Computed example of a mutant assay.
Amino acid sequence: MSGKLLTTPRVTVTGAGGPMGLTIARRLAQAGACGLALTDISGTRLGESAALLGAEFPGLEIVSLRGDMTRADEAGAFASAALAGLGGIDVLVNTVGGLRAKQLYTPMLEMTEEQWRATFDLNLMGCFHLTRAFAPGMLERGAGRIVNFATIVFGGEYGQADYAAAKAGVASLTRSLAAELAPHVTVNAVAPGLTRTSVTQNMPEAEAVRLVAGAFNRRMAEPGEIAEAVAFFTSESARFVTGEIIAVSGGIHPHL
């Protein structure tokens, strides 16, 4: 069956030390994953997530390795550990992304080349390295799912030219991979709106109010609501869904 998925998949989640990655890993474990391969740039946060998930899901096989997925050597080391520990990967969730800058907005004419390159690396290189590491096995087995993370601002945003352009790259990459890996591997993306994470918790209240004003229901998303979209893409119900970008944004529509 095109786009089929094992009933007990082996799942990789990047950025698993953060609220979003941890919530996604937990949701996919609840959905029946038989193994989790987790990574994060923070070894401390990663260890905490692995411990929490291990306590919540006794018997679930968990492989965790700290790593920077923008680096080929560290991404390769993690991929090798995941494949050796779980015997293969059926689902890849590329959660890692965001801004490298300390401030939320930087006008393009004030942006450094270092910030520009770092933002593109953060949002795209992990997808590149891990897709190349795990997709061949998915193709060989005739089944697999990849879920990338775009954003509702991929069509452009004032002061976020680097971030918006990088996420537009993620959206385009998702469509390209969907075509290249069809029919057995589906590739989709989630485009969250403003979501309650550690970044937004530190945001000035006035800025948060301004940003949520564009949503129909006037609030931020919760990480669990984003995780539900990821769970859908990795489920049997989505076996004929590929190359799609679903916005979880309270009605804000991403577009170019």
Score class of each variant (00 low, 15 high):
residue 160 Q to E: 15
residue 106 T to A: 09
residue 28 L to K: 07
residue 252 I to G: 01
residue 197 T to D: 04
residue 203 M to F: 14
residue 186 T to W: 01
residue 43 G to Q: 06
residue 116 W to N: 12
residue 203 M to D: 06
residue 218 R to Q: 14
residue 248 V to F: 05
residue 132 R to C: 07
residue 120 F to K: 03
residue 228 E to H: 11
residue 156 G to H: 08
residue 85 G to N: 04
residue 23 T to L: 08
residue 103 Q to I: 08
residue 65 L to F: 03
residue 108 M to N: 11
residue 10 R to V: 11
residue 14 T to W: 04
residue 93 V to W: 03
residue 83 L to M: 07
residue 176 S to E: 15
residue 79 A to S: 13
residue 14 T to H: 05
residue 194 L to F: 11
residue 156 G to P: 09
residue 4 K to S: 11
residue 154 F to T: 15
residue 200 T to V: 11
residue 72 A to P: 05
residue 198 S to L: 10
residue 201 Q to H: 11
residue 168 A to L: 13
residue 176 S to T: 15
residue 220 M to F: 10
residue 166 A to W: 05
residue 210 R to K: 13
residue 155 G to R: 10
residue 163 Y to H: 14
residue 105 Y to D: 08
residue 9 P to S: 12
residue 249 S to E: 02
residue 44 T to S: 12
residue 56 E to W: 06
residue 242 T to R: 03
residue 70 T to W: 03
residue 199 V to M: 15
residue 178 A to C: 06
residue 164 A to M: 05
residue 218 R to G: 01
residue 58 P to W: 08
residue 169 G to P: 02
residue 61 E to H: 14
residue 45 R to W: 06
residue 198 S to R: 12
residue 32 G to F: 14
residue 185 V to S: 05
residue 94 N to T: 10
residue 233 F to M: 02
residue 10 R to K: 12
residue 167 K to W: 07
residue 73 D to S: 13
residue 178 A to V: 06
residue 17 G to Y: 01
residue 54 G to C: 09
residue 137 G to W: 05
residue 58 P to K: 09
residue 187 V to E: 00
residue 175 R to F: 08
residue 183 P to K: 09
residue 129 H to W: 14
residue 256 L to T: 10
residue 102 K to H: 07
residue 48 E to P: 01
residue 68 D to T: 04
residue 119 T to S: 05
residue 249 S to T: 15
residue 173 L to H: 02
residue 139 L to M: 15
residue 7 T to P: 08
residue 78 F to K: 01
residue 81 A to Q: 07
residue 252 I to V: 15
residue 64 S to L: 00
residue 141 R to S: 14
residue 218 R to I: 09
residue 72 A to G: 04
residue 112 T to V: 05
residue 224 G to R: 05
residue 216 F to E: 12
residue 249 S to G: 03
residue 224 G to H: 05
residue 103 Q to S: 15
residue 181 L to W: 03
residue 178 A to L: 09
residue 112 T to Q: 06
residue 139 L to A: 13
residue 226 I to N: 00
residue 240 F to R: 08
residue 241 V to T: 13
residue 71 R to D: 04
residue 123 N to K: 08
residue 125 M to C: 11
residue 5 L to N: 10
residue 105 Y to E: 11
residue 111 M to G: 01
residue 182 A to E: 03
residue 212 V to S: 08
residue 208 A to P: 02
residue 192 P to F: 04
residue 162 D to W: 03
residue 156 G to I: 14
residue 34 C to H: 10
residue 153 V to A: 10
